[in-house]
C-alpha cells in the first residue's frame, strides 16, 4: 500500500505558489473543500486562476479567497450567488471565463484521462464558440474544446482511506472525482479518514492513484445554500 496521508491542510499545500491554476470540487456549496480553501486563505497565495463550477457565496467557499483578493481569474459555468464576485468582475479586478457546465466537466475528465481535446455540440453558434475549430459529425456542428491544465486540484470526499481511495455522498460527488483525476497534484480532504482495508474496494468512486495527498478535514460547516422543505401535514 502506498500511503497518501498527510498531517493537515497546511502540509497538503506544499508546492502551491502564486499564479498557479487550481481546481476546486463542488457544486454551489455542496461538496466543496472547505479546509483546503481556508488553508489557502491563511497562506495568502495570490493571483490564482481557479477552475470551479461556481465561485462560492459572499464570505464562504471561494468567497473567502475573493474577499482577500487572492483570485486573478475564475473559470466557471455559473457565478450568480456572490456580490463581491460581481463587484470585482464589473470593476475589472477579476477576469472571468464562463463555459458550459458539461464542457467544464468534460475538460476535467479529459485532463485526467489523457485526452488532449474533444468535440462537443455545446455552445455551437454562441459566444462560447468564438475562435474555436468547428467540425461536423453526423450532420451536426461541434466545437473543439481542450483538456484543462491544472497544477493542483482540491477535492472533498465523504470517506477516504490511507491509500487515497475516495467515496462521496449524495450530490456532493459532482465535479470532485473529475477534478481529482485532473490535478497534477490532487489534495483530498475527507470527513472520515480510515485505515487501508476499511473501505470496500467495490464501492470506491475514485481510486487512490489519482489522489496524491489525503487528510482528515475538521470543523466542516457544510452550509446549505437554499433550504427548501415541505410541511409534514
Amino acid at each position: 500500500m502506498i500511503n497518501r496521508i498527510v498531517d493537515n491542510a497546511d502540509v497538503a499545500l506544499d508546492g502551491l505558489e502564486d499564479g498557479m491554476t487550481v481546481m476546486f470540487g463542488g457544486f454551489g456549496l455542496c461538496g466543496i473543500p472547505e479546509n483546503s480553501i481556508a488553508a489557502i486563505r491563511k497562506k495568502g497565495i495570490k493571483n490564482l486562476t481557479c477552475i470551479s463550477n461556481n465561485a462560492g457565496v459572499d464570505h464562504f467557499g471561494l468567497g473567502i479567497l475573493l474577499d482577500n483578493g487572492q483570485i486573478k481569474k475564475m473559470i466557471s459555468s455559473y457565478v450568480g450567488e456572490n456580490d463581491e464576485f460581481e463587484r470585482q468582475m464589473l470593476s475589472g479586478e477579476l477576469e472571468v471565463e464562463l463555459i458550459p457546465q458539461g464542457t467544464l466537466a468534460e475538460r476535467c475528465r479529459a485532463a485526467g484521462a489523457g485526452i488532449p481535446a474533444f468535440f462537443t455540440p455545446a455552445g455551437y453558434g454562441t459566444e462560447v464558440a468564438e475562435g474555436k475549430e468547428v467540425r461536423e459529425f453526423n450532420g451536426k456542428p461541434h466545437i473543439l474544446e481542450h483538456a484543462f491544465d491544472s497544477s493542483f486540484a482540491f477535492v472533498k470526499a465523504w470517506k477516504g482511506d490511507a491509500a487515497g481511495n475516495l467515496i462521496f455522498k449524495g450530490t456532493a460527488r459532482n465535479f470532485n472525482p473529475l477534478m481529482a483525476m485532473a490535478g497534477k497534484i490532487t489534495v483530498a480532504e475527507v470527513e472520515q479518514l480510515l485505515p487501508a482495508g476499511q473501505l470496500d474496494p467495490n464501492e470506491i468512486h475514485v481510486p487512490g492513484i489519482f489522489v496524491h495527498r489525503i487528510y482528515q478535514g475538521s470543523a466542516f460547516e457544510k452550509r446549505i445554500e437554499q433550504r427548501t422543505v415541505r410541511s409534514r401535514s
Partner: peptide, 10 residues
Amino acid sequence: MVKGMGGAMD
C-alpha cells in the same frame, strides 16, 4: 446580468 450558462448550453 452575467451569471453564466450553467448547464443550459449543453
